[in-house]
Amino acid sequence: MIDKNNLINNTQSYGGVWILAEVAGKAIDKVSFELLSRGRQLADARSTELSAVVLGWRINQSDLEELIARGADKVIFVESPQLEHFLVEPHSACLLELIKQYRPEILIAAATTTGRTLMPYLAVRARAGLTADCTELKIDKETGGLLQIRPAIGGNVLATIITPAARPQMATVRPRSTKPAPMQKGRTGEIVRINPPADLLKSCLQRLGFESDQSTHSIQDADIIVAVGRGIGNARNIRIVEELADALDAAIGASREVVDRGWLGYPHQVGLSGKTVTPKLYIAIGISGAVQHLAGMQTAETIVAINEDPQAPIFTVADFGIIGDLFEIVPALTERVRQARKK
């Protein structure tokens, strides 16, 4: 599969930090700016260059320049109509060629559906170590290696993982686990455009179409999430939570129990087996706070919990807790929020 002699793991010959920009259609997704923020820190700690790799088609020059304004020293834009939408084989093949040519020491991507597919596929081809879903990345001061930190075992613990010899050191990073890199006026950098050869663009997969469904991503983008757990009792009662969410302009999240019972769809699920969210405000209603749920929301800026059981683990992560009957508290809260918002 790969010529092992070509990829001797001589860590010395690798240099530079790369982020893989996330492309949505013909635009750069803003999760890429979070990667730039991570990448910039790593590149500075290594006193090396930060490059943003963009695989896509007809991306505006101004979008590529924005990557530089937000911290990239170099943008490598691989352009082809076959790269307009993500398909694992051409994306992986193009990146593998780039890695062989430029030999970056670090490659990070977002832990999105694209990154979580492409990175493990590519890591095998490149014989590179890969850590999934990191929440923190640092440079080890002694070795200069990448410390990849991620929640493990139901989010109970944080594991620090290293890639001792294989290069590049690869990691996917949880979206919303850091702030996007800000625009800086006057930053300059180089834009390299590459037209990949046809043999890298072959795919056994064909994308036939797309059905938009905004409900699948709204909870990860929401500033406020009102989340509901088993304490709500049945599907009909979810209405009272929806009313509060409506009053707050919030998205609706759910615990695994609620989704498993079919009271809300899977796109609403927060937790390790659902989505990780970092909203400004998370209101947990009737959620006891199983470890797997806490792992998906404990980085929210402000957490409010409403639950009958004073011992519920959700209170251990809450900034403000109300112990009591949600069926009394939530409608009264909704009313007060509506009044406050009118003013």
């Binding site: 949505a24 939408h85 999105t112 559906t113 694209t114 056994c204 997969l205 064909q206 994308r207 036939l208 179409g209 797309f210 059905e211 938009s212 469904d213 905004q214 699948t216 991503h217 990860q220």
Partner: peptide
């Protein structure tokens, strides 16, 4: 295929 913004239809 379920992605962040909806469903892709893929043939293989």
């Amino acid at each position: 295929r379920l992605i962040e913004t909806g469903y892709e239809i893929i043939k293989a």
